[in-house]
Nucleic acid binder design. Structure first.
Lengths: 353, 353
DNA sequence: ATCGCAACGGAAAACGTTTTCCGTATAGGT
DNA sequence: ACCTATACGGAAAACGTTTTCCGTTGCGAT
């Protein structure tokens, strides 16, 4: 029922030449008459010949494959990274093996399996609350890049978004718009990202000569509900605050919804900036959220490119922070009409049966 | 710099036996003294030997690998399917090659590449607006399963969520709660899912002897904004409607937000049911949305299992619809307190500096 | 002692390529 | 006619396994 795939031998037979000649003809090698080459190409074409990558890789000692280990279940963060990696690998002939490894033992198994498949490199992605332990290569000398994941091992190469710089970007923007009493509502402090963003927040205040108030930094869950709760608290403060920098777009949405329903105008009374640029949230909020984009696609792309370099080149190490970018929508009060940075929620209200 | 991986020959040398013996010892084959077996295992252990899967696959004519082609960029639909597939493959020693193929030419390239790697099977996933053309295997006889994707080829096996049944579930539920004047707000009609869900909506009304009104089915964008717009329109209708079945959770959220702000109570005045169970939306809405879950994880798992069967078994074909499931939260007015089906948004409002 | 039979483990083929090396024509020069 | 250089294409090794087949060895039974 399942007929065997056509091999180079079949092509050779049909073309009336030896297998070596087929290989040369198809790969543009050696000294062959154009006529022979054509005959072979023809035979290959007619048979629908695909060289067996397995055999090729075995010989070449390269699989033209990279492994991708994603800790944390694929979520809104992993995906852009994934896409970025693919976009870097796409122009090469490399393909990617995907593994999800929620726990260390599964990760171990997957790494083993990748090694057994002789992958040319491994990218580890997926941020946990804190730095992870390095993958155990068991003596194999395969390049590894950590993307959106930080590892203790100083010999590893890690690519991370510049959370601190991103926060700085956001708060500088608010300050530039004349806001002076700025609060920060963010996630659980056991996330390193939370601590870094808070640092960026403080950097910006300090740089502008503003004094941060202890009661102006609120940490809680990464949820709209917490955003609403925090907004209620902040709205009661006197003297009133005039801006809120949120640690995530979900929080920002909760904050904005709550303020609006309390009668506080956003951005007029209080400007709000979020983090993540999760556009399902950010663009659907009223007003749409100005937010920090971590450029995760680009981060993934860089990870792919770096790995490519490392496959047959030097193996750099260290932690690299890639810059974030501010996406200006309307919740900060800066956008006037249709700026290029405004990404409106797609909408065409066609009614029909 | 990159030292060559340890081969079975190295192990044989260290253990003082032949390569064949190593293979037998490690795979529990043949007749060997326990002592020999141990010696080999020891040597392998000490060297950190990993059999080269490439060589193995070449010989076995099986790569223990399946290809996964995801049309449409990985989104909230692809991911649960992906995870489901992985959960089915996880207990086997199969790994998955991931390819994203936005356009036909890329898809072509990826399929070629997968075939060259002699994958044992291919799963195609990712719903477009309508049925896609089958992947071109170019004569190879590799089993293919379409998951969350429908193809014209009648010899193909397609797994789809039962959109029509899911809609029926939702509307039956509303009717069971005593609602009689039910509207339907949904996405663009060029989606087959939209047409199927609308059919389910009508089925349910008809089964209950209710008359559907033309003006009660509104189609537009898959957006909160459209939901709000539609809600405004429906709220003005007299006699008043008492329930809305929405084609997506995003639409439902827009509907609910808009109703609440207009002073219409949900679920008391108007009950709302959504579709997708996208919990970032559904659980964060006030009140949390009762919604239809397409069981995409299970669908992916089934796809994986079916492919496993097809790899060395018969190759069934046809379209199979897997049942949806209603997740009851509060927007329909059925939930009383903490039902097992209520999935509250995680939230712990701890304040801190 | 001789035979037979297990038990053990080695040798070699096979998988499908690539690539090096070599043999044979053919052509060109004297 | 002979030598040589070149063009062409075949033979075979190599990649790292698995598995079949066969040769030894040692043992117990006659």
């Amino acid at each position: 029922m399942t007929k065997p795939p056509v091999t180079i031998r079949d092509v050779a037979r049909l073309a009336g030449v030896s297998v070596g000649t087929v290989s040369k003809a198809l790969n543009g090698y050696g000294q062959l008459r154009e006529q022979t080459r054509d005959a072979v190409r023809n035979a290959a074409e007619r048979l629908g010949f695909r060289p067996n990558d397995l055999a090729q890789s075995l010989l070449r000692k390269r699989s033209f494959t990279v492994g991708l280990i994603s800790t944390d279940s694929y979520g809104r963060f992993s995906i852009p990274v994934l896409e970025g990696i693919e976009s870097a690998l796409e122009p090469t002939r490399l393909s990617v093996f995907l593994c999800r490894a929620d726990d260390p033992v599964r990760e171990r198994r997957h790494v083993d399996s990748l090694l057994a498949k002789r992958v040319d490199g491994i990218i580890v992605t997926g941020r946990r609350t804190d730095r992870r332990s390095p993958v155990d290569l068991g003596g194999a000398s395969v390049p590894v890049v950590y993307a959106f994941a930080q590892v203790a091992d100083p010999r590893a190469l890690c690519l991370l978004p510049d959370d601190r710089g991103g926060a700085r970007l956001a708060v500088d923007h608010l300050i530039g718009l004349g806001r002076r009493r700025i609060a920060h509502v963010t996630g659980p402090v056991d996330f390193e990202a939370v601590r870094k963003r808070r640092q960026g927040f403080r950097d910006a205040l300090a740089a502008a000569g503003l004094r941060g108030r202890a009661g102006h930094v609120l940490t809680g869950a990464w949820s709209e509900a917490f955003g609403r709760e925090a907004a209620q608290y902040l709205a009661g403060l006197r003297p009133a605050i005039d801006a809120i920098f949120c640690g995530s777009d979900q929080i920002a949405r909760g904050v904005i919804d709550s303020l609006r329903e309390t009668g506080v105008r956003v951005p007029d009374d209080v400007a709000v900036v979020g983090f993540d640029n999760w556009d399902v949230i950010a663009a659907a909020t009223r007003p749409p959220i100005t937010t920090v984009d971590m450029n995760l696609h680009e981060l993934g792309r860089q990870a792919g490119l770096r790995l490519l370099d490392m496959i047959d080149g030097p193996r750099p190490s260290g932690v690299e922070c890639l810059p974030c970018r501010l996406v200006v929508r309307q919740s900060c009060g800066a956008a006037t009409g249709a700026s290029a940075d405004i990404l409106p929620e797609h909408h065409d209200g066609a009614y029909a049966a």
